[in-house]
C-alpha cells in the first residue's frame, strides 16, 4: 500500500494535501456515501452527523476504555449506530422531504444534547439509586474525550472505500437496489409494484447509519479528541453538501464531492483571509453551473455547449417561466 501512497502524497503535498488531509477526505467520502444511500431511496435525511457522533463515541470508548483493537471498535461503532437507527427510523421515515430533514436534524441535536449532559444524567441517576452524591465522568460533555489513540491509517480508509464501492455496485444491480430507485421515483407506484416500502426505507436508513458510524469511528481515531460540537447542525449540512456537490446520480459523486469539499479549504490556504470567500464562491458557482453535481456527464456536456455558444456570442435564450 505504501508503494502507492507515498508517490501519491508526493504529488498531493505541494498543493496542500498532506496525509491527515487525505485521511479526512477519505473519512468524509464515507459520510458522502452514507447520505447518498438515503437520498438515492428518496429520503431527505440529515441524520448522518448524529450517527457519526454515536459511532465516534462508542468507538473511542471501546479502544480507550476497553482496549479493543480498531477493527473491533469499528464493528462496535457501526453496530451501535445501526441499532439506534431502528427505533429512530421506524416512526421518522413516514415523514417526507423537508419534514424528514428537520426531524433528522432534530435527532442529531438531541444526540448532541445527550452527549453534553450524559455524565450529569448518569450522576443524578446514580445519586438517586445510591442515596449519596455520586460524581460520574465518562464521556466528559463539552470537554470531549481526549487522548484517543490514532489507530486509523490511510490504507484502512482506502480499503474500506474499495470494499464499499464493490458492495454498492452489487447493491445497485440487486433487487433491493432497484427497489430503492423505484421508491425514489414514486413511493406509491413502488408500493403498488409489490415493494415493501417501509422495509426498504428502514434498511437503507440503517445502512446509512452504519456507514456514518464507521466514519465516526475512523474520524475519532484521527482527531485524538471528540467533542459534541463537531457533530452538530453544521456537520449535517456539510455532509449534505458533499453529496449534492458531487452529484447523486452515482455513488462516485458523493465520494468526489466529499473529497473536493474537504480538500478545498486546505488547498486554498495560500489565499489567507480570502479563503472563506473563495470557498463559498466555488460552492455557489459549481452548483449553479453544474446543478447535477461534479460527477454528472450530462451536466458537463450541457455546460460545454453553453460555453461554446457564449463564444459564438449568441444571445442567451429568452426566459419565460420555468
Amino acid at each position: 500500500m505504501d508503494a502507492v501512497l507515498t508517490p501519491l502524497l508526493d504529488i498531493l503535498r505541494p498543493i496542500g494535501i498532506t496525509e491527515p488531509v487525505l485521511q479526512f477526505m477519505l473519512v468524509n467520502a464515507i459520510l458522502g456515501v452514507s447520505i447518498y444511500l438515503t437520498l438515492h431511496a428518496g429520503m431527505f435525511s440529515l441524520a448522518s452527523a448524529g450517527f457519526m457522533a454515536i459511532g465516534a463515541y462508542v468507538g473511542a470508548l471501546l479502544t480507550q476504555q476497553s482496549d479493543w483493537p480498531l477493527w473491533a471498535a469499528l464493528l462496535g461503532g457501526m453496530a451501535a449506530a445501526g441499532v439506534i437507527a431502528v427505533p429512530i427510523g421506524l416512526p421518522t421515515l413516514r415523514l417526507r422531504d423537508i419534514y424528514l430533514a428537520i426531524a433528522t436534524i432534530g435527532f442529531g441535536e438531541v444526540v448532541r444534547v445527550l452527549i453534553l449532559n450524559f455524565d450529569d444524567i448518569a450522576a443524578s441517576v446514580l445519586t438517586t439509586l445510591q442515596g449519596e452524591r455520586v460524581r460520574f465522568r465518562l464521556i466528559e460533555g463539552a470537554r470531549g474525550i481526549k487522548g484517543i489513540p490514532t489507530l486509523t491509517e490511510t490504507w484502512h480508509l482506502i480499503l474500506f472505500l474499495i470494499v464499499l464501492g464493490y458492495l454498492l455496485t452489487r447493491l445497485h444491480r440487486s433487487r433491493f437496489g432497484r427497489a430503492m430507485a423505484a421508491i425514489r421515483q414514486d413511493e406509491t407506484v413502488a408500493a403498488n409494484m409489490g415493494i415493501n416500502v417501509v422495509y426498504v426505507k428502514n434498511m437503507v436508513f440503517i445502512l446509512s447509519a452504519v456507514l456514518a458510524g464507521a466514519a465516526g469511528v475512523f474520524s475519532a481515531h484521527l482527531t485524538r479528541i471528540i467533542t459534541p460540537a463537531a457533530f452538530g447542525f453544521d456537520k449535517a449540512v456539510d455532509i449534505l453538501a458533499f453529496a449534492v456537490l458531487g452529484g447523486t446520480s452515482t455513488w462516485i459523486g458523493p465520494i468526489v464531492g466529499a473529497m473536493v469539499l474537504t480538500a478545498m479549504p486546505e488547498v486554498l490556504r495560500f489565499l489567507k483571509e480570502f479563503r472563506g470567500v473563495f470557498n463559498g464562491l466555488v460552492l455557489l458557482v459549481v452548483i449553479v453551473y453544474l446543478p447535477g453535481g461534479l460527477v454528472n456527464p450530462a451536466g458537463w456536456s450541457r455546460l460545454w455547449q453553453r460555453l461554446g455558444r457564449a463564444q459564438t456570442a449568441s444571445p442567451s435564450p429568452s426566459t419565460g417561466v420555468d
Binding site: L39, A241, T248, G280, V282, L283, V285, I287, P291, G293
Partner: peptide
Amino acid sequence: RRNAARISQLISSIGAAILIVN
C-alpha cells in the same frame, strides 16, 4: 432556469451564505 433539483438550490443557498458571512 436549469430545472435543477430543489436540493441543488438548497446547496447554492449554503454557498451564498458562506460567501456573505465571509
